[in-house]
Design a binder for these strands. Structure first.
Lengths: 165, 165
DNA sequence: TTGGAATGTCAACAAAGCTGACTTATTATG
DNA sequence: CATAATAAGTCAGCTTTGTTGACATTCCAA
């Protein structure tokens, strides 16, 4: 029954449906960042620090260039964030072993502690949302998100994802 | 079989699964905003202008206070954006009819044109993602997003959503 | 050994958020 | 009616996080 299917798709993708998806994405992202933002607002850090700490925790020993590609910001912008994190003893920047131009980034114990605090909060919200929506919904959620990424971001995402578990 | 179900849920909500969801959300949001950002970078506007224009288009005649609640920023921050939009003739700010303290906001023809350009781009990406993932996935996507919102944001979202269609 | 890549740094700037204090209308209330 | 509260706007100043552009350093590789 290809005509019924076609009809469904047309009905399904009304501008109004798409608009609701757009607004859901907007409001949900606010919730998504709310808990880490609250934690960081007390300290001298912001969302940019969270992102850096997250991806260093995710791939210990990653290079600055690697991080730049993942975060999609300029090196000057990242450098400012990294500098404060290194100065404050949350991140350890070690000269590369094979290529000494590179810097390999690691979290210190203190950095790991902050990372845990932030990701605990963020995971708790994610867990609650997943529980409320159920397994099938989560599968759909992930499918749509992946389809929404730019191609090169999707590649990065798969790479990080598949390097673990 | 409640034990199998319980086992599935435990397996399902591993930290690794949650982490992938978090990263998917991060990368997808970049894609989500990429097209409007590109369009706006040419003009003297940014993401804040996009948001204002979007919600004025969504609820023509909305008040400044209303917009403040939806966007979750300070009036000073919104005012700066609104002022430029009014000066540039994209937004019309009319004194309230019943309550003259209020200002009712409307898009001008020029404002509608920009809004259409931005939302066309954003909807095109959304449509492509929805098509790629399929109807069931979209349903799950929406469910998880709604569960991820803060309670008061969810209320706002439902209110806007249900005022249309 | 020289060119280019990776990294870092300085300076200047912009967008977009924030706080706090204040004004001006207008409405609501005691 | 007088006063309090509300909606909106404004000024000043600050923070975070992004941007360009210019330049230095280090070091790998052809």
């Amino acid at each position: 029954m290809p005509e019924v299917q076609g009809g469904e798709n047309l009905l399904f993708l009304t501008d109004e449906q798409l608009r609701q998806g757009i607004e859901a994405m907007f409001f949900a992202y606010r919730g998504f960042t709310a808990d880490p933002d609250r934690i960081l607002s007390g300290m001298a850090y912001g969302r940019a620090h969270h992102r850096a700490v997250h991806f260093i925790a995710r791939a210990p020993g990653t290079t600055v260039n690697n991080l730049l590609n993942i975060l999609g910001v300029t090196k000057q912008s990242l450098n400012r964030v990294l500098r404060t994190l290194v100065e404050d003893g949350l991140v350890d920047s070690r000269v590369g072993k094979s290529d000494k131009r590179e810097r390999n980034l690691y979290l210190t114990d203190e950095g790991l502690e902050l990372e845990r605090k932030l990701s605990d909060a963020q995971r708790a919200r994610m867990r609650a949302a997943y529980r409320a929506a159920g397994p099938e919904a989560v599968s759909g959620f992930r499918q749509v998100l992946e389809a929404m990424m730019d191609a090169d971001m999707r590649r990065q995402y798969y790479q990080i994802r598949d390097s673990k578990s």
